[in-house]
Amino acid sequence: WVPTKREEKYGVAFYNYDARGADELSLQIGDTVHILETYEGWYRGYTLRKKSKKGIFPASYIHLKE
Score class of each variant (00 low, 15 high):
residue 60 S to Y: 07
residue 17 Y to E: 00
residue 39 Y to H: 09
residue 43 Y to H: 03
residue 7 E to H: 14
residue 6 R to E: 11
residue 62 I to T: 01
residue 56 I to V: 10
residue 31 D to A: 04
residue 38 T to Q: 13
residue 17 Y to G: 01
residue 58 P to M: 05
residue 45 G to D: 03
residue 39 Y to V: 07
residue 19 A to K: 04
residue 19 A to V: 01
residue 56 I to N: 04
residue 5 K to R: 12
residue 44 R to D: 02
residue 29 I to E: 07
residue 26 S to F: 04
residue 17 Y to N: 00
residue 51 K to Y: 08
residue 42 W to P: 00
residue 39 Y to E: 03
residue 63 H to D: 08
residue 3 P to L: 01
residue 34 H to F: 14
residue 19 A to L: 02
residue 61 Y to C: 15
residue 17 Y to L: 01
residue 18 D to L: 12
residue 24 E to T: 03
residue 58 P to I: 12
residue 32 T to Q: 12
residue 35 I to V: 05
residue 40 E to W: 10
residue 19 A to G: 07
residue 57 F to D: 01
residue 43 Y to Q: 00
residue 18 D to M: 12
residue 18 D to N: 12
residue 14 F to L: 15
residue 28 Q to P: 00
residue 15 Y to F: 12
residue 40 E to A: 13
residue 4 T to D: 06
residue 52 S to Y: 12
residue 60 S to R: 14
residue 37 E to N: 04
residue 15 Y to Q: 15
residue 52 S to I: 07
residue 59 A to R: 10
residue 22 A to V: 11
residue 49 R to H: 13
residue 5 K to F: 09
residue 44 R to T: 05
residue 6 R to L: 11
residue 50 K to W: 10
residue 56 I to G: 01
residue 63 H to T: 10
residue 44 R to P: 02
residue 23 D to W: 10
residue 4 T to Q: 10
residue 6 R to G: 13
residue 17 Y to F: 09
residue 58 P to A: 04
residue 55 G to Q: 02
residue 38 T to W: 11
residue 25 L to C: 04
residue 5 K to V: 09
residue 27 L to C: 06
residue 48 L to A: 07
residue 39 Y to F: 14
residue 1 W to T: 08
residue 66 E to R: 12
residue 61 Y to P: 03
residue 2 V to D: 08
residue 17 Y to R: 00
residue 44 R to L: 13
residue 56 I to D: 01
residue 21 G to N: 15
residue 61 Y to S: 10
residue 14 F to V: 15
residue 49 R to E: 12
residue 36 L to I: 09
residue 30 G to Y: 04
residue 52 S to A: 10
residue 45 G to A: 01
residue 37 E to H: 07
residue 17 Y to D: 01
residue 31 D to R: 02
residue 53 K to Q: 12
residue 28 Q to T: 11
residue 53 K to V: 12
residue 13 A to W: 05
residue 8 E to L: 08
residue 6 R to Y: 11
residue 24 E to V: 03
residue 5 K to M: 10
residue 14 F to M: 15
residue 11 G to W: 06
residue 50 K to G: 09
residue 35 I to Q: 00
residue 20 R to D: 05
residue 9 K to C: 15
residue 59 A to Y: 03
residue 28 Q to R: 15
residue 13 A to M: 02
residue 11 G to I: 05
residue 38 T to D: 04
residue 15 Y to H: 14
residue 37 E to S: 08
residue 29 I to A: 11
residue 11 G to E: 03
residue 47 T to Q: 09
residue 44 R to Y: 15
residue 66 E to T: 14
residue 3 P to D: 08
residue 19 A to T: 02
residue 38 T to S: 14
residue 22 A to C: 10
residue 32 T to C: 15
residue 47 T to S: 09
residue 33 V to F: 01
residue 11 G to R: 03
residue 35 I to R: 00
residue 20 R to Q: 13
residue 36 L to A: 02
residue 23 D to F: 09
residue 8 E to V: 11
residue 36 L to K: 03
residue 58 P to L: 10
residue 32 T to A: 11
residue 7 E to R: 11
residue 40 E to L: 12
residue 52 S to E: 13
residue 46 Y to P: 02
residue 53 K to C: 08
residue 59 A to L: 04
residue 51 K to G: 09
residue 34 H to G: 07
residue 64 L to Y: 03
residue 28 Q to K: 14
residue 59 A to E: 04
residue 64 L to F: 09
residue 32 T to W: 15
residue 16 N to G: 08
residue 48 L to V: 09
residue 3 P to S: 06
residue 9 K to I: 10
residue 11 G to F: 05
residue 44 R to M: 13
residue 30 G to I: 03
residue 8 E to Y: 11
residue 16 N to E: 08
